[in-house]
Design a protein around this nucleic acid. Structure first.
Lengths: 268, 268
DNA sequence: GTCTATAAACCGATAGAC
DNA sequence: GTCTATCGGTTTATAGAC
């Protein structure tokens, strides 16, 4: 009895997944405004009315797709961070055999770069899902509160990189003038929510950098770089480095000295 | 005879304008994908088929709207620059009476700020036109070559601010590491096209800054700043200052001296 | 140049049989 | 849970009268 309910739920989950997959495929050619329940049903060989057993309305399907997209890019960012750390630990272990320093993650700037690159790579690989979450709002659609959790995964990864750097004493002071008071107030509130130990200036800089990062990705994906920037990956890597500097992550030593040579992404 | 042709053409131009106006109004509630020739006709009290005498297809109407939007934001930027210069000249003239220096435009950073603010203000005032040109690409629509001229008005204004600063010896060296080779190649090509006298690093930085500027505007307009940034205008102003520093515009002195509180990175 | 009429589609959502 | 049938709308685009 719980067995047949299990099977039923499994079947339901499978069909739900198939619907979302087909919907995502349609998103890729029609855009979010062209997503049609009927077309999805047609392609899946079901009656359009059957879909309503899985998604009570078109907007609910859209919400599911949006959450999936946020989760996908968030997971890409998290995994990229884990991967760059694992890689660094491997190297460190090899060095320890030769008699060197302690185990740790990768250098802050390398972690930052890895996360940024992962976001861009996910976006390039899934341009329509990207447009769904970071492009023009879908007209007539209001994102429910359930999307904010998944939406904050990428920013949280970026924050964690900066927090770790700060904890390790590897975070400098971001450049720029003192914060205007209302800006400071926003940053204070954000800092209290997600990183109380970080300097307020750093928090404020992170918000700006967060928007700027996606600005570059959006310009590439939405065609603004056509006939302007050809070396997209290298350009992005350079920009990511500059963004790191803006939040106080320096390329080299704790405080001052600049370190490594030119900065192109490993994946490029 | 040429009189009646003149009248006819005037009437035609007026109706064309009315169509575009109504279409823009619809864009504001439906989004670009929901723009419908029939609805425009209905609202204008004409038969839908009559519109085809003015725009051969829906895409042509869309193209006209896109060009208008690019022109509008470009003009806003140009006028803001002219206004800030005029204002500075007024003040200078008043000072001359008191026996001070020669006439000139405003300070480079102020000009930069004015242009950035004008772009944002136009975007906030015309969110749907903004989304049309800087948001997700309209599915199934390919922008014709005729849009690239109007599209480059804003970047050209930004370039002119930097060029003037450079000519006046008021441009510093942008912070950051040396350019990776493919990025340099893009920047060299762009520099040859639109500002041969500018240092390559500055040109490269300008491209990044251009994308970042619109990244901030897009995040604000597309809802990513909801419940995150409340002091939108002040935040944007601060970010615009940081972007100015990235292209080498410093807040203060002519040449080297980092006049303002920490204009450039410590590592550079 | 504007109209009516029409073609040939499409859509979200619901009712009710099975 | 899936189906058929249907309601009540929508669209782009064209034909042909005036």
């Amino acid at each position: 009895m719980s067995a047949i309910r299990g099977a039923r739920e499994r079947a339901r989950a499978e069909i739900t997944e198939a619907i979302k997959e087909e919907a995502a495929r349609q998103l890729a050619v029609q855009g979010s405004a062209g997503l049609s329940l009927r077309a999805v049903a047609r392609e899946l060989g079901m009656a359009s009315s059957a879909l309503y057993r899985y998604f009570p309305s078109r907007d609910d399907l859209l919400t599911a797709l949006i959450i999936d997209a946020y989760d996908a890019v968030g997971e890409a960012a998290e995994q990229a961070l884990a991967a760059v750390d694992a890689d660094a630990r491997d190297r460190a272990a090899a060095a320890v055999v030769a008699g060197a320093a302690a185990p740790a993650g990768a250098a802050p700037v390398d972690r930052w770069r890895a996360v940024c690159a992962a976001v861009r790579e996910w976006a390039v690989a899934h341009p329509h899902e990207y447009a769904l979450i970071y492009g023009s709002p879908v007209p007539g659609y209001d994102a429910p509160q359930t999307t904010v959790g998944p939406a904050s995964r990428v920013p949280l990864v970026l924050v964690s990189v900066v927090r770790d750097a700060h904890a390790a004493g590897l975070l400098g002071v971001p450049p720029g003038r003192p914060l205007a008071e209302p800006v400071r107030a926003d940053a204070v509130r954000l800092a209290a929510e997600l990183a109380p130990e970080l300097p307020i200036r750093v928090v404020a800089a992170m918000v700006a950098v967060w928007a700027q990062l996606f600005g570059i990705v959006s310009f590439e994906l939405f065609g603004q770089f056509n006939r302007v920037v050809e070396a997209r990956g290298a350009f992005f890597g350079q920009a990511a480095d500059a963004l790191a500097a803006q939040v106080g992550l320096t390329a080299g030593a704790p405080d001052g000295a600049p370190a490594a040579p030119a900065g192109v992404l490993p994946g490029e």
